[in-house]
Every structure is written in structure tokens, then in C-alpha cells.
Design a protein around this nucleic acid. Sequence first.
DNA 1: CAATTGATGTAAGACCGTCTTACATCCGCC
DNA 2: GGCGGATGTAAGACGGTCTTACATCAATTG
Lengths: 206, 206
Amino acid sequence: MSRRSYHHGNLKEALIRAALDLIAQHGPAGFTFAEAARTAGVSPAAPYRHFRDRDELMADVARRGFARFEAVLELAWSQGRPDPFTAFERIGRAYLAFARDESAYYSAMFETGVPLDVNPDLAAAGDRTLAVLKQAAEAICARLPPERRPPPLMMALHVWSLSHGVASLFGRGDAARRKLPMAAEDLLEAGVLVYLQGLGLGARTP
Amino acid sequence: MSRRSYHHGNLKEALIRAALDLIAQHGPAGFTFAEAARTAGVSPAAPYRHFRDRDELMADVARRGFARFEAVLELAWSQGRPDPFTAFERIGRAYLAFARDESAYYSAMFETGVPLDVNPDLAAAGDRTLAVLKQAAEAICARLPPERRPPPLMMALHVWSLSHGVASLFGRGDAARRKLPMAAEDLLEAGVLVYLQGLGLGARTP
DNA sequence: CAATTGATGTAAGACCGTCTTACATCCGCC
DNA sequence: GGCGGATGTAAGACGGTCTTACATCAATTG
């Protein structure tokens, strides 16, 4: 597709990439529709052919972010191989790695206040991501005798909350974040280990 | 102070209150310097006499938020009376109550990306808040034999992360947040209980 | 093989918010 | 009673959002 032609050819994708770049550079707030258009080399009005407004572009970025996040977590889990505990630890590290390396996606997903109730697709993408965590939690819970088995959804929500908390408060090099005496990864891993211990899953002994 | 006089009389305070109202109504992003000025009944340029820019007003709101938050958590802890575990549970509930009831402050503190490294006062206010959590963690850890005693700072960071995660993801009525099959307070309490159990603090038996 | 038509981009402009500069008013203090 | 600093206003440059009217292109279709 010639760069000289009147039509861009793939403006929608270009705008999404521009949004990611701009969010990565200037934070989730420092991104404007107009600048995304400039980055893509089109007029300020062109993006409106593809997105109703700035928020819709942001929501689309968030939706794609959830899809990637789901794939990343699914890969980390790898059906619980070689054993659920090793795989569960991989999920925690993958979570923080995504928050750090795909910071623009993570911002769009969790730090922009995109309303879920008017974005069914976005909500569904988030649900699928949660489902990966829940699946992992189920495999872990299955190691416990039924009478001491917690609800897997609750366990998934705990792990998600702890991971999101660590990522938000300490997870990125960002100047807005607090400095830590330890790596965020180690903080999260220690927290999850204590949590699993608390469920009665002491040091990987079924 | 007459509302008719040329000078407002207490514009700085009025702007902060206006900022809180506007954040509460339209979210942390939907607040403008100009609208705060309108709310206070002054010209759009007047706020610049009191704050260098919009971010400085936001940072001031965040700083005050941390001071209030610290007071709330300190009150909830109440020097660990009647016993550290009861007091610790109160902290968790107070955390979520603050995030819900003082939503505007909480947003300014954690969701606006105010850089900490250029706001020493803000960073210090945040540190004092963390100190309350650390103090509580120390009292809890003291119940454990020294050889099984975790670093209190780590424990404080875990509890903070979990609380912040629950508050961010599920804590507010906000349309941006996900619906839950349980109250956020119960989710957090259950998580903290499992965590304490994992530290070897089973069901409040020293 | 045009001609039409819908999709895509541009031009222009209304409106709003940020922030600056120059000026007006007021209060406290000597 | 008037000086000076503090506080507010007026006006305007600049940029972002979004709309409306128009231009261009590409693909279908007769």
C-alpha cells in the first residue's frame, strides 16, 4: 500500500499502534486523538471514520490488551504442567511481566476507567482472562480434600487482586510508583506462597 | 466573607473542595481547572494564583487524601486494641470504606499518576500512611516465634497490595468495575485471613 | 469497460480547556 | 491616607475534540 495514496489503507491498525506508542511514552492520559492522527500521517478528522471518539479507541486497545493478556496467562499456565504449583508461579511472573512490558496495554485495561457496562465485548474479554485464573485456581484447589477446599473463584480473585495491587503500586519503573526494597516479582511470589500455605498447601506437598 | 467582594477570600480551599466534588461526579479525568474555577465562582485564570497548574492542585488533593487516610487507618488500628487481630481486620474494612466513601481522594492518590519524585511532601504523606500498616504488621508478627517471623514491611506491602487490588478492581460502585458474587469487604477479609493463616497465625491462636 | 456507490480521507470551523501577560482591585500596614 | 503585595479579571495564543460539508478512491455491477 503506497504511502502516497489518498487513502491510508490500514488506518485503524495504525491508530491502535499509535495509541500504544503514545500511551507508552506519555502515560494513559497523555494521549490525544489528534496526535494519534498525526503519528499515522492523516488529518485530525480521519480517526472519526474508525472510532466514534477517543474513548472508543481506548476501549478497543483495552479489548485487544485483554486478549493478549489472556494468551500470555494461558501460555504461562500451560495446562498446569509440569505441576500446578510451578505453573501457578509462572502465572504470577507472567502477570507482572505483562504489566511491565506491555505497560500501554495494561494502562488501557485498568487505568483509564473505561466503563464495562457499555462495552460488552470488553467485559467479555475481561471475563475470559479471569477464566484462565479461575481454571488454574481449580487445579490448585483440587489438591485439597473437599472439606477444606475454598471456592476457586474466590482464590482466583484473591490472586488477581494481589497481583494487580503489586503491579499498580510497585510494578513499573514509573515515577509515580513507590520504590521498594525488593523486586515486585519477589514480593508477589512471597505473597502467593504465604497465601497457598494459608490454604493448607504447604510447600508443594499435596 | 461576602460573596460580592472582588476577592474570594478562601479560594484555595474552595478549589480543593470543587476538585473533590468534580472528581466524585465525573471521575479523576473529568475534572478541569476551568470548571473548578466556575464552581468557585471566579474567572478561569484565578486558580493560577494558588496552583502552578492543574497537576499541582491534583497533587495537593492527593496529599490531603493521604493525611486523612493515615488518620483513618490509625484510628482503625487503635494501637492494636483490644487485640491485634481484631484491630487488623478493622484496618482492612477501613481501607475499603475509605476507597468507597472518599472515592475522590482515593482517585487523586492512586489513579492520577502524580509523580512522587517531584512531590516530596506527597511521597512523605504516602510513607506515613505505609508506616501505619507497618506498625500493625509488626504487632502481628510479634505473635510469632522469631525464627518464623516474616519481615513486617513485607507483610505490610502484601496487605496493602491486596487491599488496593480489591479496592481498584471491585471496590467501588463505579461502572468501570467488575461485579462480584460477594462484597469486596468479605473478599478482602477472607484473603487476609488466609494470608495470616499462611504465616502460621491460625484463627487467632498465638 | 465505464458508471455508480459506499468507504475513506480532507477542510474548515465551533467550542472548550490550558496557560500567559497585562491590568484592576483590595487589604494590611506603616 | 497612601504604598505595596496579594488576589482576581480580561484578553488572547495555542491545541484538542468533534461536526459538517466536500473530495477522492476502489469495488461492484450493468
